[in-house]
Design a protein around this nucleic acid. Structure first.
Lengths: 252, 252
DNA sequence: CCTCTTTATAGTCGTAATGACTATTAGTCG
DNA sequence: CGACTAATAGTCATTACGACTATAAAGAGG
């Protein structure tokens, strides 16, 4: 892990360290917080008040503090930006780390990006003195600050892929949900329509994906037949996976 | 990306920056370099000469230099440790970033881990003054230094998963290979035996996975019928995926 | 040179999974 | 009540897959 060669640049070597020097970087976390609301994929963004990129939307985030891990920092920022008192149940997953030397014009910043998934209803209350975070439609975003377009796109791609072979979709749903709502998560993230009976068959055939709440039902938007309610099951993976419809024609 | 709140600890704020301070960390890359040689999964490791963890095996790695990205640093280290002059064709993929505050007892080090895959024949020549890197069997590794056990396990898991739905396996193979060799990559990484005709059928049915080199054949270890030679095709993903045999019994 | 062993390759067969449907049920709205 | 909407049930043909059997082409050893 540590350099065994004298290639590192100038800088102070802390006591008890190698004889080799290193260059310190600032380390931050960036959060791609996603939710599905009414068939629309939304991301939590903050408006920058100062240069660079003043007035642009940016991902919420902040510095990793000296005694916390990036994961802890991400969860702390998530609580601050969403205003939720308990974020312990939310799905938070490390996405990738962005290290291009010029990604922040002011200084060298290495950012560990996380993707977080929220069920529908969270109010975007920014906590106290924080800049107000807002939910914006994933489509219909202008260019974001820094390399945040790429981070957000990577988050979308990752989440879309994980829907195929994990039970991740339930993280977008409240504790009790209908299969129609679950299907809408898939359709919204993938941007494709799915056949309802087939989706249903597949989900129910996967043990531990969802479990029915006996006797419970809910009117979906007031119209149509009431749907049975389900909650997330214990399974984490989908075997076999629920593949998104392939657009590629297969040459014989 | 940058803190909008005054929570960061003491430290100097660079010119043109927020009024908020930050704490600098050292940033390194760690490499999980894997290869399959003769049905055995091997990892490239270096022996530590000094405390902490003196005498233990560790992943190759080093500091990210001030003007390079982590990816660049990883490729530089990869070239140094393997002694290969051209590592541009090798598969190198960011794995995850490890940020636990106590992962290095000497100081705060954030490490961006990469997984690299090599075809069989590379000699483990450590370049020049570098500690000699060696190929060791993935099984039969004692505890490694720092959190490198975890990093290596994460790399193994990631690679195993990506074999299922990408064409990654060809990265373990030389430019020309037989289907038997390709199958051995799967079997070695997954640790399971596969049915040869079924594997063959699946690979050949996936357009762009491999393409046959017309007329070419090779004796596999001197015994048996000569096998046709293939090279990697243009495809990156496998649709549908090549799932590893599931050990889980499905309750009806 | 003949047979055994080894590895590659071809093909078969039944079952599971999937995509494209149709039909029925249970609600609201006007 | 009848139109409309959404959930749920079921059908059917095709594809994919796991478990096999069979054949082909090489070397080894007597």
């Amino acid at each position: 892990m540590l350099a065994r060669e004298g290639r590192a640049p100038g800088g102070k070597a802390p006591e008890g360290y190698d004889k080799y020097a290193f260059e310190p970087f600032a380390v931050t976390v960036d959060l791609a917080v996603l939710t599905v609301r009414g068939g629309v994929l939304q991301a939590l963004l903050v408006e920058r008040g100062q240069e660079p990129y003043a007035g642009r939307w940016a991902l919420p985030g902040g510095f990793v503090l000296p005694h916390e891990s990036a994961e802890t920092a991400a969860r702390r920022e998530l609580a601050e930006e969403t205003g939720l008192s308990d974020v312990s149940g939310l799905h938070l997953e490390q996405l990738r780390t962005y290290t291009e030397p010029d990604r922040d014009p002011r200084m060298r910043v290495v950012s560990v990006a996380y993707a977080a998934l929220l069920p529908d209803p969270p109010e975007p209350r920014g906590g106290g003195d924080a800049a107000q975070a807002q939910w914006l439609r994933y489509n219909a975003l202008g260019p974001l600050a820094f390399d945040h377009d790429r981070i957000l796109a990577d988050a979308h791609e990752r989440v879309g892929a994980k829907l195929e072979y994990t039970c991740l979709a339930t993280s977008f749903c409240p504790p009790e949900f209908t299969l129609g709502e679950l299907q809408q998560v898939y359709e919204t993230v993938w941007g494709t329509a799915l056949d309802r009976p087939n989706f249903r068959r597949k989900v129910l055939a996967t043990p531990g994906f969802v479990e029915q709440i006996p006797g419970a039902a809910r009117l979906t938007g007031g119209r149509g037949k009431p749907a049975a309610l389900y909650r997330a099951g214990g399974a984490k993976a989908l075997h076999p996976p629920l593949l998104r419809p392939t657009s590629e024609g297969r040459p014989s």
